[in-house]
Simulated assay, not measured.
Amino acid sequence: MDWQPIETAPKNGTSILLINRNGDIAAGLWLSDARGTGWFLSGGTKPAALFNNNQGPTHWMRLPAVPPLGTR
């Protein structure tokens, strides 16, 4: 899958890859709850500064499949 415009990203709690204008890439998800509203890094407890405000993500991509356990 190629990079998609951020406007088409899922906002249902699905973890995806995000890239911002600076070329920073991270796994994250959109949340809107008591912790805040915005792009959270996967496992984060507050909206990620690198992926919100003026540095917001420009594109997204689905995460790759996890390899089978026990392989190298």
Rank of each mutant, 00 (worst) to 15 (best):
Q55K: 11
L18M: 14
N54A: 10
F51A: 00
W3K: 07
P57W: 01
G36V: 03
W60D: 00
L29P: 01
L17C: 08
D33P: 03
L69S: 10
I16R: 00
W30V: 04
I16E: 00
I6R: 06
P10F: 06
A27Y: 04
N22G: 05
D33I: 06
L31R: 15
G56W: 02
T8G: 09
D2Q: 12
R62W: 13
A26V: 11
G43L: 07
M1V: 05
V66S: 12
L69I: 06
A48F: 02
N54R: 08
T14A: 15
A48I: 01
T14V: 12
M61A: 14
N12I: 07
L63I: 06
L69W: 08
I25F: 04
L18V: 15
G23E: 06
P5E: 13
L18K: 00
A65V: 10
D24V: 12
G13M: 03
I19Q: 14
R62V: 10
G44C: 06
D24F: 13
G23W: 04
K11A: 04
K11R: 15
A65P: 01
L63D: 05
I19P: 00
G38A: 03
G38N: 02
G70W: 07
P47M: 08
M1Q: 10
A27I: 10
M1P: 03
D33V: 07
I19M: 15
P57T: 05
H59E: 05
K46Y: 10
L69E: 12
S32T: 10
N54W: 03
M61C: 11
L17T: 02
D33G: 06
I19R: 15
K46F: 05
P5A: 12
D24E: 15
L41H: 04
T45W: 14
A65H: 08
A34E: 09
P68T: 12
D2T: 09
E7P: 05
I19W: 04
A65Q: 11
A34V: 11
